[in-house]
Structure formats: structure tokens, C-alpha cells
């Protein structure tokens, strides 16, 4: 093995010396990844953009230029899905980050049983979304689910048990007793999907943050404790700045993931669209159009718009949040 690598190195070295660059060895190193990503990632991407300029049901396609884009940007379905996507991103990423930050902080200070607790918190992340969602569907089933069984045992259910994943009315509407109009904010069904996602991904964030915390010198915190700094002060001035690279990483990755979320929607609601389309995020809209209605061009156009939204948001975060990240 070593001699093979050495022999290859010598060959590449010979090639490099002539060109005064690392190009030959770099081509060798990136070739497998670039080939696969080019063929199965970039190619479909180009094809998708190309198809977004056509109308038709996947056959007899004809060119219509930007027609699909104008249709998307003027359609109720698109803006509805955009709102659902935004609710979802805002409702999951910061919440799971906050929960993970608090839990990781707690776990870090626990000496005995930390390993076990950490394992338990990480557990949902290793289970398949399809299997876990299957379980959650039963948990939230209005009739046999433990959610309503618990509420009714507590005597909190009148003659209208919560419908969870079937409820299109806004959660703010329900909580405010009807004072806030139903269409404002996410539906209860969407909130259920959010809670599922928070449950499923927080373990991952906790482990990353815990690892980040382990890198913080203990003395720093102890001296702060001696100074009499409270929980908030310690976190705000010591822990948060030192964890900021990890938090920033989780934010970027979490936002991209949340924008593209599909499996949990599909597995929890059956179609992804949910009651009155209130869980139809952009990916579900794309999926429905591509595979349910055979509107290939329209679906592809929404996909391009989604990708643009993700790129824009990632760059914005990089600029405005990234600046505030504290690197040692």
C-alpha cells in the first residue's frame, strides 16, 4: 500500500514539476467525486433548469421561455408554499438550536450519567424518518393516539379533541381562542411536523455543541463562577462566543436542510400537502407537480426558485451572521 502510494506520488511529482503546479495529483484526487457529482448531481440540475423553460406533461414538451416562472410567481400555491417553508425554517432551526444549546450546556455540567443521557438524546437522529414518522402518526392519531388519550385523562378535552395533523387552522388562532384569524401563522398540522423535526434533529445538534463545549477551558468558567456570574452571564459572555463557530455551522446546515425538508412532511401527512395544503412547502409543491400532476416544467421552475432562495439565504447568513462568529 505504502509503496503503491509512493510510486504514484513519484509519478505525479514528475508531472507536477513540469507544470509547477499540483494539477495532476489534484485531478487524480477529485476525479471520482467530481465524476459522480457531475453525472448524478450537476447534470440533473442543468436538465431541471432546462426543463423549467418547457410546458407539457413530460412528453410533447414545448418551449415557453420564462412562462413557468411568471406562472409560479403569480400563483397562490407558490406563495402559500413559500410561507409554509419560511414558517418551517423559522419554527425549527432556531428552536432546535436553542433547545440543543440548553441541553448541551446541562449535559456538559453533568458528571455521572452524561454518556447515557447523551446517547438517549441522540437516539432519534439515527432512526429512519419513515419509521419514526410512522410511530408519530399513531401517537398523534386523534382517536387511538396517546396525545389525545393523555389530554382526555387530564380532562382537558371537551367535545372537540385536537386534530393534530388534520388541523388546518392556525395554531395562533387556536391558542388565542379565535381572536387571531385562522390564516395567520402556521397551522397546527404544520406545527406537529415542526415538533417532529425538532425531536428528530436536536440530538445531532446537541452532540456537536457538546463537542464544542469540551474544547472550552474549564478554568474560564470556574473563574466566572467565582466572580459570581449567573447562568445568563456565563453563557452570554463565555460559552456563547466560544461556541459560535459550531452554532454558525449548525445554523447554515440546518437552514439548508429545513428549506429542503420533504421526508418528514410526506411520511407524516401521507401526501405531504396536509390539510388544506397547510403543510405544502416548496419541496412538496415541486414533488406534487413533478410526480402527481405531471407538470414537469412548473415543478422544475419552482425547484430553481427554491435553489435560488437557498443560495441567497446562505450567502446572507454568511455575510451578516458569519461576521459575528468568534474564532479563536
Amino acid at each position: 500500500m505504502d509503496s503503491l502510494l509512493g510510486w504514484l506520488d513519484d509519478r505525479f511529482d514528475g508531472l507536477s514539476r513540469r507544470s509547477h503546479r499540483d494539477t495532476p495529483i489534484a485531478v487524480f484526487l477529485i476525479a471520482p467525486a467530481v465524476t459522480i457529482l457531475g453525472v448524478f448531481g450537476v447534470l440533473p440540475l442543468i436538465l431541471s433548469v432546462y426543463l423549467s423553460l418547457y410546458a407539457g406533461r413530460g412528453i410533447n414538451m414545448h418551449f415557453i421561455g420564462l412562462g413557468n416562472y411568471t406562472r409560479a410567481l403569480t400563483s397562490e400555491a407558490f406563495w402559500n408554499s413559500f410561507a409554509v417553508t419560511l414558517y418551517y425554517v423559522v419554527g425549527t432551526v432556531p428552536v432546535s438550536l436553542a433547545i440543543s444549546f440548553v441541553v448541551a450546556g446541562g449535559l456538559y455540567r453533568v458528571i455521572r450519567g452524561r454518556g447515557l443521557l447523551r446517547t438517549v438524546y441522540f437516539l432519534p437522529y439515527v432512526t429512519s424518518v419513515v419509521a419514526a414518522a410512522t410511530v408519530w402518526r399513531v401517537l398523534l392519531d386523534p382517536r387511538v393516539g396517546i396525545a389525545n388519550a393523555t389530554l382526555s385523562a387530564l380532562g382537558w378535552i371537551g367535545d372537540a379533541p385536537p386534530q393534530w395533523l388534520l388541523e388546518p387552522r392556525g395554531v395562533l388562532h387556536l391558542l388565542s381562542g379565535g381572536w387571531i384569524p385562522s390564516g395567520v401563522g402556521p397551522s397546527l398540522a404544520l406545527v406537529c411536523v415542526m415538533v417532529f423535526d425538532i425531536w428528530h434533529t436536536s440530538g445531532f445538534m446537541i452532540v456537536i455543541l457538546l463537542a464544542g463545549l469540551s474544547a472550552i477551558p474549564r478554568e474560564l468558567e470556574e473563574s466566572a463562577l467565582i466572580d459570581g456570574a449567573g447562568w445568563y452571564k456565563r453563557n452570554r459572555h463565555i460559552v456563547l462566543p466560544l461556541l459560535s463557530p459550531s452554532l454558525f455551522f449548525l445554523l447554515i446546515v440546518g437552514v439548508i436542510r429545513a428549506f429542503q425538508a420533504f421526508n418528514s412532511f410526506y411520511a407524516l401527512t401521507g401526501t405531504g400537502r396536509g390539510p388544506l395544503d397547510t403543510t405544502q412547502n416548496m419541496t412538496v409543491l415541486i414533488f406534487t407537480n413533478l410526480y402527481q400532476y405531471q407538470r414537469v416544467g412548473f415543478g422544475a421552475a419552482v425547484a430553481t426558485l427554491l435553489a435560488l432562495a437557498i443560495v441567497t439565504l446562505t450567502l446572507v447568513q454568511w455575510r451578516f451572521v458569519g461576521r459575528r462568529v468568534h474564532y479563536e
Partner: peptide, 17 residues
């Protein structure tokens, strides 16, 4: 009049009930 309730799509809660 609360004479019916909706079951989750794809489920067979009606049959079970």
C-alpha cells in the same frame, strides 16, 4: 352538529372505531 369526524388520510380509524 358534530355528527361526524374526519380520520387521518391513509388510516383506517373508521373501521377500527
Amino acid at each position: 352538529e358534530k355528527l361526524c369526524y374526519q380520520i387521518p388520510p391513509g388510516s383506517y380509524d373508521d373501521r377500527d372505531a
